[in-house]
Design a binder for these strands. Structure first.
Lengths: 194, 194
DNA sequence: CGAAAATTTGACATGACTCAACTGGAGTGG
DNA sequence: CCACTCCAGTTGAGTCATGTCAAATTTTCG
């Protein structure tokens, strides 16, 4: 049971669960350990799970026709990650989701999620709120990626999520910020000097 | 009743409603007419309604510190629009939502939406699916806005939503595509010649 | 019809990218 | 424990996509 206390805590931010509901929820989850560099989602395959990170760090990214990587999301302990488009519509993924550190994940399968909705409709609410917040965050990020210069984007990331700079390598940060590693390197240099 | 048949149709894509539920839903809605250039949401004010467009065209946009406009969303007949972040958290908006044409809207207030969830929990499901799809769409758009050139973005819009090019003025399209009106004008010229 | 708004065009500026070479750690195997 | 490789990160020079500023033209609509 204890292995799931963190995820239950996470869900409890938005809905209140009884002990029985917690147990039912836990019975529909599975724990998964992944090693650094391992993929949990790949293009062409249907994304089977919604993933909560108990400990570790992952990122999702897209590879363009030119072979360039575009990082969509960075996620660490107590965050959720997936190719949600693929998961929700149960269609082939377009993204990679890769472990950046050795990580412990808690996952729910699409089937079990449907069961959960039937048995505990409250979860519709949780995932509604969860998606709404996700959508709001993505929107903010988009806005930010088009309205700010590369240097401002770096500054804001540093201010808002300083942990990310420590846990993700520079080329990942660069692709998350929408710039080349070379350019990120120049920015950091410029900033150190001032 | 007939005035709400389109929105009920829209909801019925994802959940099945009984006649009673339809009626309850309708009783919680209001119809609103707005004229071109009118705002239904403004920064500083809390967004009161989730808005469905019966007929017309609206856009949401953000104004940066430099005074530049960034269009977040374009929406026409049978689409939903709002500053969802403001609406969901009932906090002051950061966006403008403006009618681009004279439009007829159908709105549900935050309070009534809560009532709706209590009386017809199915709506949690509808709005969950709705938000998930919204999130997926925003993500796609973001991906697209960082991985494509200005000209490719224009082409794709033309291919995917040709109606938009007819119903929204060019400066709105330009700001939606993340470029200046001047540059959009050059792109169109270039394309006409080939 | 006339004024204001939207669009187009031209000349020039620049932020960010590309390519290519170099540096420095972190593993790895002998 | 050294030598070797390999990848991440840095640096420099040149280029290009897109922006800026300003003026000309066209469209919209009261």
């Amino acid at each position: 049971m204890t292995e799931f206390s963190a995820i239950i805590q996470n869900v409890s931010r938005f809905v209140t669960l009884t002990k029985e509901e917690e147990q039912l929820f836990a019975s529909l989850l599975r724990t998964q350990k992944v090693r650094k560099k391992q993929f949990i989602v790949q293009p062409e395959f249907v994304c089977q799970y919604r993933t909560y990170i108990a400990t570790g760090a992952l990122r999702s990214y897209f590879v363009g026709n030119d072979g360039q990587e575009y990082t969509i999301a960075l996620a660490i302990d107590d965050w959720w990650i997936s190719d949600f488009t693929s998961y929700i519509n149960q269609e082939p993924a377009t993204l990679f989701v890769e472990a950046v550190e050795h990580s412990t994940l808690i996952q729910i399968s699409y089937q079990n999620e449907q069961t959960l909705y039937e048995k505990v409709p409250k979860f519709e609410r949780f995932f509604r709120i969860h998606s709404q917040r996700g959508a709001a965050a993505i929107q903010k990020r988009m806005l930010w990626s088009i309205s700010k210069t590369a240097e401002e984007r770096y500054e804001e990331l540093q201010k808002k999520y300083p942990q990310f700079l420590l846990r993700f390598p520079q080329y990942v940060i660069a692709s998350y910020l929408g710039m080349t590693t070379q350019f990120l390197s120049r920015i950091r240099n410029r900033r150190i000097k001032e």
